[in-house]
Design a binder for these strands. Structure first.
Lengths: 331, 331
DNA sequence: CTGAAAGCGCTTACAG
DNA sequence: CTGAAAGCGCTTACAG
C-alpha cells in the first residue's frame, strides 16, 4: 500500500521557501517573518500536510510513546489498571501504546522484541509469565519496567500482612476450615502468602492443610472449580480468592448449587474492582493500591528513560481490607 | 535520550561485508553464501542488533500496525471487544496499537490526528463521539473504519427487532410499566430504538410515556440513578438497560433499597458480558454479536488498506436475547 | 554471489 | 530572517 500525503518539500515548493523554513515554522525553533509563517500555515492546511512520524523519529529518536504489554484486558482489574496508567502517562506527555499479546507465552516475547526497535521510548511489562530479567533482555537498549516486580525498585505489597489480617478476621468469626484459590498473576508472592498462612496456623497450634489451596488461573471459571472442590469436597466455611474475578466464580458456583453467601459460605476477594461493590452480596475484598503502584511504575520508567537517578528505590505498600457483606460469623 | 543500539553498518563492518549484504541476509531477498550468512547471524546476536523500526518504515511505509482508538477499556464490553479484535488482526499479521483517549472529547481528536502521520497502516475508530466523517478527516490519507457506523459498509444491528422482542416478552409476562435506561454508545441507533418502542405501544393501543426513558451514560452509576428514578418514582415493574453495566447499577440500587430482582423488579441488559452470567440472579440480556462485527470491521479495514474491492457492503445482524433469571411474571 | 550509491522525509548545524 | 547540505538507518535498483 502507499500512503500518499504531501511532504514537507511539497509545502515548501507551494509556499516558495525552503524545506528548512517550513520545518522551523513548525517547530518554532527559529523566528520566521509573520507573512511567510501565515502562508505556510495556509498551505499546510490546503495540502493537509502531516509530518511523517517515522522520518521525525529517525532524526530525534524520542517518540514519547510507551509500549505497554499485557496478555489481555478482559480482566476488570487489568482494564482499570490500563485506564489509570494511560492517565498517569499523559501527565508527562507520554502516550501509551498498548499491545495485547494474547494468552500464548511466545507471543509476549515477540511483542516485547518488536517494541524494542525504536518505536517506543520505554516499555512497561505487565506479563506475569515474563520476568524482569527476560523482559530487559528482550528489549535490549530500551528501558523496561516490569510492573511491581522490577529489579531496580520493586514494589513490595503487604501480602503477608494482608493474608494474616484476613485469616485473623475469619478465625475471629469462628471459621476453622478456610480454603484459598491462588492467583497466577502474583506468582512471585504466592510463596510468601503460603508462608504467611503456615505461620498463622502455627500460631494457632494448627497445621496448614495444603489440600485447602486450589491453584487458580485468575479466571472466574477457576473460582468456580475451586469452590466445587473446596466447598463441595473439603467442606470449607470460607474461601479466600487471589482476585475478585475468581471470587465471582465462587458466587456463581454457590448460586448454581443453592449455597448461600455468606450464610453457608464466606468469600473474600482481592482487587476491589467495581463489580465487587455491586455484586450481591457486596464482596469483602482487598483494595489493590492502583494509584500508588502506577505512579511508582511511571516514575521509575521515566527515570530510566531520562537517565535520571531514582529518588526512591523500593516502596512498601499496605493493602487495606474492605469489609462488606460476603463474610459472616459461624454460629 | 539516546537509544544506543548497533546499526546495520556496525554489523556490516564487524562481519566485513557491505550493509546491503546484511540487509539482504535479513530479508532473504537475495541468495547469500552460507558462510557469510552464518557470520552475520553470529554478529547480529553478539551486537544485539535490531533493525530500527522507523528507518524501515521510511522506505516501506507499511508498518502492519493498526491504530485502535477507544475512550477507555474499563467497560467489560469494550475489554472483550478489544481482546477479540486483537486476535482477529493477528490472523492477518496485523498488530493492534491501542490508544486510550480518556474521557475528554478533544483528546480523541488529537489521538486520531497523531496516528495519521504514518505510524499505522489503518485505524479503527471506536469513539462514539466521533463520526465516521470526522474520523476520516482527522486521519487524512490513512484508511479508517468507524466501528459499526462506517459509511462504506455499515453494520446494521437488529436493534428494532430486539427491542420489540424484549417488549413482547415483558408484556406477555404482564409488565405494563416498563422503563428504559438508554446507552450513549449507541447514539445513532437510539432514535430507531425509541421509534420501535413507540410502534410497539401503538400496536398495543397505548402511548409511549417519554418519562419512562432515562438517559444513561453506560456507567453503572447511571443505571443506579435510572433505577432510583424509574422504580422509585415512576413505579415501573421492569427496566431495560442499554448495556449490562447499567443493569448492574440497577441491581445495586435494588440491593441497597431492599427491592428484589426479579420478584419486585425485572431487569434486561445488553452485551452479555461474563458478569451478566455470574451475577445473582443471572441477567437476561441481549448477546452483542462481537465475532461477526469484528470480522466485518477487520475485513473492511484491510480492504481499504490493500485497496481491494469490498465483497460485502452492508451486514445485517440479528441480536439474540438470552433468557436468564432476572425477569419474572407479574402476578 | 556482492558492493557502491541513491533515496525515503525529515531536522539541524553551517553559512549567509 | 532564510537556504543549501549533511545525515538519521535503513532498502533497493543498478552495476559488476
Amino acid at each position: 500500500m502507499k500512503k500518499k500525503g504531501a511532504t514537507i518539500i511539497d509545502v515548501a515548493r507551494e509556499v516558495g521557501v525552503s524545506p528548512s523554513t517550513v520545518s522551523h515554522a513548525l517547530s518554532g525553533n527559529r523566528v520566521i517573518s509573520p507573512a511567510i509563517k501565515d502562508k505556510i500555515q495556509t498551505v499546510i492546511r490546503k495540502l493537509d500536510y502531516r509530518p511523517a512520524f517515522y522520518a521525525q523519529a529517525l532524526k530525534n529518536p524520542a517518540t514519547r510513546l510507551i509500549g505497554v504489554v499485557v496478555n489481555e484486558c478482559r480482566n476488570a482489574g487489568t482494564a482499570l489498571f490500563l485506564d489509570a496508567l494511560a492517565d498517569e502517562l499523559h501527565k508527562f506527555s507520554y502516550h501509551p501504546m498498548i499491545s495485547l499479546s494474547g494468552r500464548g507465552h511466545e507471543m509476549g516475547e515477540d511483542v516485547l522484541r518488536q517494541l524494542s526497535t525504536g518505536l517506543v521510548d520505554g516499555v512497561i511489562n505487565l506479563l506475569p509469565q515474563i520476568s524482569p530479567e527476560e523482559a530487559q533482555k528482550l528489549c535490549g537498549a530500551i528501558p523496561v519496567v516490569t510492573n511491581i516486580r522490577d529489579t531496580m525498585a520493586p514494589v513490595s505489597l503487604g501480602f503477608v500482612k494482608l493474608m494474616q489480617k484476613i485469616l485473623d478476621y475469619l478465625w475471629s468469626l469462628g471459621h476453622r476450615q478456610i480454603g484459598y484459590v491462588s492467583s497466577s498473576t502474583r506468582l512471585e508472592q504466592e510463596g510468601e502468602v503460603v508462608e504467611a498462612m503456615k505461620d498463622f496456623y502455627h500460631r494457632k497450634k494448627q497445621k496448614l492443610d495444603e489440600a485447602m489451596i486450589f491453584p487458580g488461573d485468575d479466571s472466574s471459571d477457576s473460582g468456580y472449580a475451586g469452590a466445587d472442590l473446596l466447598y463441595g469436597q473439603r467442606k470449607v466455611t470460607a474461601i479466600i480468592c487471589g482476585n475478585d474475578q475468581m471470587a465471582f466464580g465462587v458466587y456463581q458456583w454457590a448460586y448454581k448449587n443453592g449455597v448461600s453467601i455468606p450464610g453457608q459460605l464466606s468469600v473474600v476477594g482481592f482487587d476491589n474492582v467495581p463489580q465487587s461493590q455491586s455484586i450481591i452480596p457486596p464482596l469483602t475484598t482487598a483494595a489493590f493500591p492502583y494509584e500508588a503502584i502506577i505512579s511508582h511504575t511511571v516514575k521509575l520508567l521515566l527515570a530510566k528513560i531520562e537517565k535520571r537517578a531514582l529518588t526512591t528505590h523500593e516502596v512498601h505498600l499496605d493493602i487495606p481490607l474492605i469489609l462488606r457483606d460476603s463474610v459472616a460469623a459461624i454460629e
